[in-house]
Simulated assay, not measured.
Amino acid sequence: MPLAPPSSLREFRQLHQSGLLLLANAWDAGSARVMESLGAKAIATTSAGLAWSQGYPDGDLLPVSRLLDAVASIARVVKVPLTVDMEGGYSSEPHAVGELAAGVLDAGAVGINLEDGSGTVDLLCAKIEAVKLAAARKGTDLFVNARTDVFLRGVGPAERRVEETLARARRLRDAGADGLFVPGVKAPADIKAIASEAGLPLNVMAMVGMAHASELEALGARRLSSGANIATATLGRVAALTTEFLRNGGAVSPPEAGITYPALNALLTRG
């Protein structure tokens, strides 16, 4: 699989400049192609959903060879820009994270998510720098969406989380990050403050009780991710249908949203 064309990266960057990029996170080639067919302007992976689809739990436990194979299979069937959730890079060694990012580029992606999780901002910055160097060695670039879990993990006093997020954002930006992902932030005032002061396009994650997409856009957010929600709901539907089938052996419910055997085959024929 050749590198994605430079126009794909330019297109992806432009999607963060104005408006609100809605990213329904896919977990395999089939889900990605369905999402693209419904009008998705870009495809992002969910680390949790992708790990589950490969038979592993979420949390930097997926073998990188399985990640790269999955990314290549998605890139083969979609034409819109693809960005990949690399969790913490599956390593604590920045050089190894950079090499993995190079592999993701080779597989056809134009962007990644890279998170601090329970690690330090120093380590995340070092990983971002290594990723950028690895991309430069290939004569290209990669959109790095740096995720910080201050809100998701409840780091420090609640009244200091915006301040802490912005302090991290400055360092991540200086390390070369192209976007800032702050999952868990939900209050409109917090979103507005981070969006206006971070100096990076702000990515938030859809949550129950969060403002409508149009309000998030007005607050300054530039990217809204579904996270693992669609994958989780889909597997929940699998569980419900399987339970019913095992109970009485009857036919499952009719397909939803036009997702039939012929329709899915047709979507994937161009791959």
Rank of each mutant, 00 (worst) to 15 (best):
S65C: 02
L267N: 05
V162H: 03
R66C: 04
G119D: 15
V64A: 07
L172D: 10
V71R: 03
E87L: 12
T260V: 10
G30I: 14
A107I: 00
D174K: 15
G154T: 01
R161V: 03
V238A: 03
G19I: 05
P157E: 15
V97S: 09
P57E: 08
S18H: 10
P201G: 14
V121F: 07
T83S: 15
F181N: 11
G227P: 09
M1E: 10
A177R: 06
V84N: 13
G271L: 00
S214A: 14
V110T: 13
T260K: 09
R33F: 00
P81S: 10
V97E: 08
G271N: 02
G179L: 11
G250D: 01
L22D: 10
G220S: 15
V150D: 04
P183C: 09
P157F: 11
S8G: 07
L62F: 13
T46P: 04
S253G: 07
A239I: 00
W52L: 13
V78W: 05
Y56C: 03
A40P: 00
K192F: 01
V71E: 01
L20G: 06
P94F: 01
K132H: 10
A239L: 02
A218D: 15
L152C: 03
L219Q: 05
G220Q: 15
G154P: 01
S8F: 06
R10D: 08
L23Q: 10
G88V: 01
R10P: 02
S92T: 09
A266T: 09
G156I: 00
P255L: 07
E256I: 00
E93I: 04
H16T: 11
D174Y: 13
A257L: 14
K192R: 11
K132V: 02
V155T: 06
L20W: 11
L62Y: 14
T46W: 03
S196Q: 15
R170I: 10
T242A: 15
P262K: 06
V208F: 09
P254K: 07
S118F: 12
E36D: 01
L21R: 07
L9T: 04
E159L: 11
A75C: 05
L3I: 14
P201I: 12
S91N: 06
S225R: 12
T269E: 12
D174W: 14
S253L: 12
L224H: 11
M86H: 05
T242D: 14
V150F: 06
A32H: 00
L142C: 11
A101F: 02
T46Q: 03
R10I: 04
L267M: 06
R10W: 04
P201M: 13
D60C: 12
R153Q: 10
A187R: 13
G103D: 07
G176H: 04
S226A: 15
L267K: 04
L219D: 08
G88S: 10
R153S: 08
R237E: 05
E115N: 10
L246T: 12
L246H: 14
P94C: 05
E217T: 05
E215V: 14
E244L: 15
G154W: 01
P262W: 09
G30K: 02
D141H: 08
A4I: 02
S53N: 09
K138P: 03
T269M: 10
L235V: 13
L21H: 07
L264W: 11
K127F: 01
D69M: 08
A136D: 06
